[in-house]
Each structure stands twice: as structure tokens, then as C-alpha cells.
Nucleic acid binder design. Sequence first.
DNA 1: AAAAGCCCCTGGATGC
DNA 2: TGCATCCAGGGGCTTT
Length: 270
Amino acid sequence: MPELPEVEVTRLSFADRIAGARIVGVRLGKPLRWALGCEPEALMGRVVRAVRRRGKYLLLDLDPGLLMLHLGMSGSLRFASDQPEAGPHDHFDLQTTLGILRLNDPRRFGAVVWAPHEAAPEAVKLLGRLGVEPLGEGFDAAAFHQALRRRNAPIKQVLLAGDVVVGVGNIYASEALFSAGIRPTTRAARISAARAARLHAAVRQVLARAVEKGGSTLRDFSNAHGQAGYFQLEAMVYDRAGQACRVCGAPIRLIRQGQRATYYCAHCQT
DNA sequence: AAAAGCCCCTGGATGC
DNA sequence: TGCATCCAGGGGCTTT
């Protein structure tokens, strides 16, 4: 479910409300991808100062410490003072003086990991190889082109890898490539400066638009208030195999790249 | 260094 | 209705 827009939408939906909250309890469900990395009791009394995002990770700044949350494929967060009894897929509760932050994650590819601070090995292991933030100042068209020149893999897979630019998952990789008019199978190194600049702009535009629309709700994504997103209604190619391209009418094609589905228009993307 | 495969796990859709 | 198969928004790890 969650790519950068969904993670950012989630962050925006509860960051202000949890700021200043003091941790009064932790409830763990079934194991997630990684262990928490500390005794739950060690978190008691700490204050949540802020919620940041790095790639698809949510970072809870504790005083002191850092809690890194990842939603994996099927995770979603809820923050409310009145939470129902935990269900079978509620695997982490952070009980605070301002409400309970709850992670629901049926597939359990998500994680909640503690680190003493951002430069600590526990944090570097997860955050250290991440590429540049696409919506930040550091995402530069010329540098993007230079990074692509070093990669021989298909551009779709380079976008997904997250070491050049973070946050672009399977939906938005297909959408950004459509917007830029680039075939997903194109070797990254063979993309011209002009086309790299178009892709750079497309990545920013598609992700920003998706944040505006509250993310994409394909099956069950919702923000921390339980509200769905609507970007999927404007998808040009994702999940539209066989349907007419919204621009030229040609049937949208579905191929597999690295065991992931890729959608594109053979007429609009060259 | 980069690329390709392999998993982790549950649930929903589809087909027989 | 029951059961098998395939697929899903991610990404770290191991092997080429």
C-alpha cells in the first residue's frame, strides 16, 4: 500500500496531534519484520517531540531517542484517544497521554524499530542507503541525470530501488514514467538529459498530486483518522491493463519487471 | 559496484 | 461450498 504519498499523508494526519505526548504504555502483537530493539519499558515516560518522514519511513523523534516505523505492504496507522480493542492485525500500540498510535499490518512486512539517535547503527542500517528526497530541495535534475547514467538497469527498477531517489513505489513509478513519456524498460543510462529532466519533474508532480489527493486507496489504505485516498481515480496506467489510454486510446500494457507489475502505454511512452 | 532472485506473511480474487 | 493457485502498495539479504 504505502509509497511516499501514503506515508506522508499518514504523517500529516497525526503529527501535530501527537507532538508533546508522553509515552505511558506499549503493546506488542505478533512479530513484525524486525524486533523493536529495546525493552518496551525503556520507552516509558519519553515524549514524542515530532514526526518526520524519510523515504517510506516515519520517524518519531523521542526525547530522547528515535522510533522508526515502516508500513511495509499492508500497514496503516491510526491515532485516536478512543481505540477499540486490538484486532488480530494490530501489532503495535504506542499508548500516550494524547492518544494511542496503532499499527495495523496484516502481512507484517512493516516494522517499528528503536534507535538511540539517527546516527546510531540501528538507524543507519535502515536509513543509510536511501536516496534523495524527491519533494525536497536536494532533488536536482542534473544530478538525477548523472545518477541515471551510472545505471544499466531498466528505469522502472532504478526508480523502485530507492537508492537514487526515495519514495517511488510500484504505483507512482508507472505513473511518473507515463507522465514523462518514457518506456519503463528503457535502460536508465540511455536516458538523455532532456528526458531525465522530464522524469525529474514528473516524479515530483505525481507524488505531490498524490499527497494532495490523500494517497491511493487500492484496498485498505487510510490515514491516521481512517480516511481513504483518491489518487487511484486519476491513475493513467496503474491497474489499467487492457483499458484504453486516457490520452491516446491505445490499450494499456502490463509487463513484469523484477516480479512486479508494470503498466504503460506503448504509444505515449517511447 | 550493480543487478537479479528470493524471501518474509496474510487475505482476496479467480478458477476448477 | 471447498480447495488450489496467483497476486498484492516493500525492501533487505544473498548470490551472481
